[in-house]
Design a protein around this nucleic acid. Structure first.
Lengths: 211, 211
DNA sequence: ACCTGAACACCGTTCAAGT
DNA sequence: ACCTGAACACCGTTCAAGT
């Protein structure tokens, strides 16, 4: 039943399965059964599991570039770069462990890479040299990836150690001699706010490079 | 022969194996045979594979904090934070896929977390509020993690597609309509230099938050 | 062209048994 | 206390065979 397996349906089901059960449970057999077929059936549409993972990455990155290209160029480079960072973060957040799994992966689709062109145009148009524009995108990407990896690790830490991040338990676990660490833990606010603040710092640094 | 397997020897051998053969080849059986014992022997010293991976993370992070505490406080916060970033990067670089594997992981040793205390002291002493100091360390950590993930992915891309990153092939693969992307690719310099430049941007942004 | 059934080599883990 | 041998359930992948 529900036949007509296609490459796209496989990728979509794989992303669903990843969100439901996590990376360890993303197995060829579980994926196949979710699609109502036997495991070997998938090998007709996909060379091997690695190719499936690559396809998933490409799908996610294509969503990123689609979302990015829907952003109308705004008043200045600062808002544009901020929007870039926010979109990248929110697309990573859609998928369990998205930043760790889908960052720094090679792309099997040239269009994904070519989407960078528009952003280099905007930034060089705003007064950045090409090298600076390239650095800018790299830097913001690196920050977002690192930020969301931490964020997702903390969020869905699931399973083994549920209240490692409960403040009281954490304070006790830290013991003596870490008063600032404890106090900082209690100050720690919402992920969105921390992201905006830290993104602001990066943008300030970039602004300092412009005439 | 060569008995006397201990927890530390297991972790060290696991890190060696990771560097030699990569994450996929880091299997309990391969690790055991490298230590001259059968696979079940490891389960006397370690509860399961996840605990082994946690122990590896803790080991790596302890090296980071050791390296960090050997840095004498310098003239100003800027050099201190720069040194923090450089040490974190170089320790990640010691291990294949180090940034992806060892970032954002939970720590099984309170001392590793407590090492943060010294850095919060330095930064608050330099005029940052506690919240700003916490943001500062988070931001630099996030940047380094994201940067090194990309760097290591590119570096040892090994296996399947060896010259995806050869410039000529890449230009051809990109096709038409991505002239800035191509030009930026040719401008791209050494990883150390890109790291220092981008770290400098982050530090400039942090400086803008100080009185 | 697309899928199944059976099989292969390998994996993490357990457990009785040895020393 | 520490390790082995044999076994279990599961994994990715292949391949002949079905339709």
């Amino acid at each position: 039943m529900a036949k007509g397996i296609t490459r796209e349906r496989i990728v979509a089901a794989a992303l669903d399965l990843l969100n439901d059960k996590g990376m360890d449970a993303l197995t060829v057999r579980a994926l196949a059964s979710r699609l109502g077929v036997g495991a070997p059936a998938l090998y007709w549409h996909v060379r091997n599991k690695q190719e499936l993972l690559d396809e998933m990455s490409t799908f996610v990155m294509r969503r990123v570039t689609d979302a990015l290209s829907e952003i109308a160029p705004s008043a200045g480079w600062r808002d544009d770069v901020a929007a870039y960072g926010r979109v990248l973060r929110s697309e990573y957040l859609r998928h369990r462990d998205g930043a760790r799994i889908f960052s720094g992966t090679r792309f099997s689709d040239p269009d994904v890479v070519k989407a960078k062109e528009r952003w280099l145009e905007r930034l060089t148009g705003a007064g950045f040299s090409l090298a600076e524009a390239d650095d800018t995108l790299d830097l913001v990407t690196a920050f977002v990836v690192g930020f969301v990896i931490e964020e997702q690790e903390r969020g869905q830490s699931g399973g083994g150690d549920p209240d490692r991040y409960s403040l009281a338990e954490r304070d006790a676990w830290l013991g003596e001699g870490a008063e600032l660490v404890k106090a900082a833990g209690h100050l720690r606010d919402d992920g969105d706010q921390r992201f905006e603040r830290q993104l602001g710092v990066v943008l300030d640094g970039l602004a300092a490079r412009l005439p």
